[in-house]
Design a protein around this nucleic acid. Structure first.
Lengths: 250, 250
DNA sequence: GCAAAAGTGTTAGTCCTACACCCATGG
DNA sequence: CCATGGGTGTAGGACTAACACTTTTGC
């Protein structure tokens, strides 16, 4: 599947696809990038097929770049979805196929296993662009009950579950926040992912203890009340923390 | 691939395989079940292909049962290995294929992605049996530097890494130990997986605090010196701990 | 000056670590 | 009766959770 609108199945491996749960953070909400299919107006995760000469990671990178315009995105494989009936659950697409009007859709009938990736991106930098099958590419709140195709809703839920677990022993935020951010913003991100509130003071202490933040001599202007300091990630230590893991837990 | 010695590729999906890292515990050593290939005498992980109408989990269950004779094994997907060159790294097999003497081997030339599973089994209950391509099925110490095909050595290392991490927030042991076991045995298991020694007294306290053990009114006989108590897992709480996770960390 | 948000501090409790001591068994 | 290994207890330190106080800013 390419952006040019053709689908040359010779370039890809049959039966193997991947789906990306692309998380972004905006207005205190955790968002997921979705596509709306032209034909059924249902929603789907950005995905694609594995090229004959690429790794899954390369394929995911490709999909990610095509939908968001970004390179060098943090992403991670988290589960393979291989239920043989996963492609058969969708009545709307099946009906469409049966009309015979859309030959492009025929490969949806095949059985696919799909490798789930999740990715973390800076919401403000993403330029969402739809693929060949969709007419819209848009952010949705992660909890929104939209009509998703196949098992995509389940894939999102699983990704969120893994992301939450990840939070306990890996730093998160570098890819989800702008370069400069305030401590309350970072906290809000954590609270949103975890789905519960955290103590402001303990959060700050713990975060600082990780040594992955640089405090800037700058405060966030324009906001009301006392202006918070700005921080940036200390990339060297951040990277080290990614590899070695963090001690604390949320 | 079946035990009867035929390989009907129509029954399986192309390009998708799975490999199982089957861990067992014996004589204070962490072992991995391996196969020795008939042709090259190299070692391989038990694996197979995904059937057209089964989930990866079912396929792994099938492989596991065929090699060990056991059902209901604890297992988990941990990573997909998708390097396009992963099937090309093996010179020995390539040489054999080039001779043309073993047509069975031809599908090794294809590109496969392989889903890695790890499984935990009771060493004493396993009856290792080789598959069609191998002449021997045997346990090897997880650290033994044997000539493994393809990236199988890397798959084992990755599985061990994941297992270690798992140890911090999931109970382990039910599938690796006999029904009744002593605290020192359980500790030895943990030490072996983690690759370092633990304090005997703290270990006992922590384990008991998880409430996943039933202390039996019975002591291990025959051993020297003071005879230790026997324990069994409290399956109800064990299951709960599997789902909800443990607090402590090693 | 008051309300709201942010920065800094304190304290109690819990958990982890590192030991010390006693008990049972085989030789 | 001593060496070895197993069972139980305890003190110190680190980390966490809960909460108080002060500072800054907009109205």
């Amino acid at each position: 599947m390419t952006d040019s609108g053709t689908f040359k199945s010779d370039d890809f491996l049959d039966h193997i696809s991947l789906d990306c749960v692309i998380f972004g953070f905006h207005n205190g909400e955790l968002k997921v990038l979705t596509l709306r299919l032209k034909y059924t107006k249902e929603f789907a995760l950005p995905g694609g097929f594995l090229g004959k000469e690429e790794t899954l990671e390369d394929a995911a990178k490709r999909v990610l770049q095509e939908r968001t315009g970004l390179k060098d995105i943090f992403m991670k494989q988290f589960k393979v979805f291989s239920d043989p009936d996963r492609s058969k659950t969708n009545v709307a697409i099946q009906d469409l196929i049966n009309t015979g009007a859309h030959p492009d859709l025929h490969f949806f009938e095949k059985r696919f296993i799909s490798v789930g990736f999740y990715a973390l991106v800076d919401f403000t930098k993403v330029k969402p662009s739809p693929d060949f099958f969709s007419d819209k590419c848009e952010w949705k709140n992660v909890n929104e009950q939209a009509p998703y195709i196949l098992d995509h809703k389940k894939i999102i839920e699983k990704a969120l579950e893994v992301l939450r677990r990840q939070l306990s022993y890996q730093p998160i935020g570098y890819n989800l926040l702008p370069e400069k951010f305030t401590m309350p913003e970072l906290q809000k991100l954590y609270e949103t992912i975890l789905g519960r509130e955290l103590d402001r003071r303990n959060f700050q202490r713990k975060m600082l203890s990780y040594k992955i933040l640089n405090k800037l001599d700058e405060r966030k202007k324009g906001g009301a009340y006392k202006s918070p300091f700005l921080y940036e990630f200390n990339l060297e230590n951040y990277q080290k923390a990614l590899n070695e893991g963090l001690s604390g837990s949320f």
